[in-house]
Simulated scan of single mutants.
Amino acid sequence: VIITALPGVAPDAVRAEIEGATLIITGMRPLPCAGRRANIVRLEIPYGRFERRIALSDRLQLAARELQNGCLILTFTKTG
Rank of each mutant, 00 (worst) to 15 (best):
G20M: 09
A21S: 08
A21H: 12
A21Q: 08
A21Y: 00
A21K: 02
A21D: 13
A21C: 14
T22H: 07
T22E: 09
T22A: 08
L23Q: 01
L23R: 03
L23A: 03
L23W: 06
L23G: 04
L23K: 09
I24Y: 01
I24F: 04
I24W: 04
I25W: 06
I25F: 06
I25M: 01
I25V: 14
I25P: 02
I25A: 14
T26A: 00
T26N: 04
T26W: 01
T26M: 06
T26P: 08
G27D: 04
G27W: 02
M28Y: 12
M28E: 13
R29L: 08
R29Q: 04
R29P: 01
R29V: 06
R29D: 11
R29N: 10
P30M: 01
P30F: 10
L31K: 05
L31H: 13
L31Q: 09
L31A: 09
L31S: 10
P32I: 12
P32Q: 11
C33P: 13
C33A: 10
C33Y: 13
A34S: 13
A34L: 10
G35A: 09
G35C: 07
G35E: 14
G35L: 08
R36Q: 11
R36C: 14
R36T: 08
R36D: 10
R37M: 12
R37N: 03
R37Y: 01
R37I: 10
R37V: 07
A38R: 11
A38S: 05
A38M: 00
A38V: 02
A38Y: 05
N39I: 07
N39H: 03
I40Y: 02
I40K: 02
V41S: 03
V41G: 00
V41Y: 05
R42Y: 05
R42S: 00
L43T: 00
L43M: 07
L43W: 00
L43H: 13
L43R: 07
L43Q: 06
E44H: 07
E44L: 10
E44G: 11
I45A: 11
I45L: 12
I45M: 03
I45R: 12
P46N: 08
P46E: 08
P46D: 00
P46C: 00
P46K: 09
P46A: 01
P46M: 02
Y47V: 09
Y47R: 07
Y47G: 04
Y47D: 05
Y47K: 05
G48V: 14
G48P: 07
R49A: 14
R49T: 09
R49I: 09
R49Y: 06
R49L: 05
F50V: 06
F50A: 04
F50P: 03
F50C: 06
F50S: 01
E51A: 01
E51N: 07
E51T: 13
R52S: 03
R52C: 05
R52T: 03
R52G: 11
R53S: 12
R53H: 10
R53N: 04
R53C: 05
I54D: 10
I54G: 07
I54A: 09
I54T: 13
A55M: 01
A55L: 05
A55I: 12
L56I: 13
L56C: 03
L56M: 15
L56P: 15
L56T: 02
L56Q: 13
S57R: 13
S57I: 08
S57L: 09
S57H: 15
S57Q: 12
D58G: 15
D58R: 12
D58H: 11
D58P: 15
D58V: 15
D58S: 13
D58I: 09
R59W: 04
R59D: 14
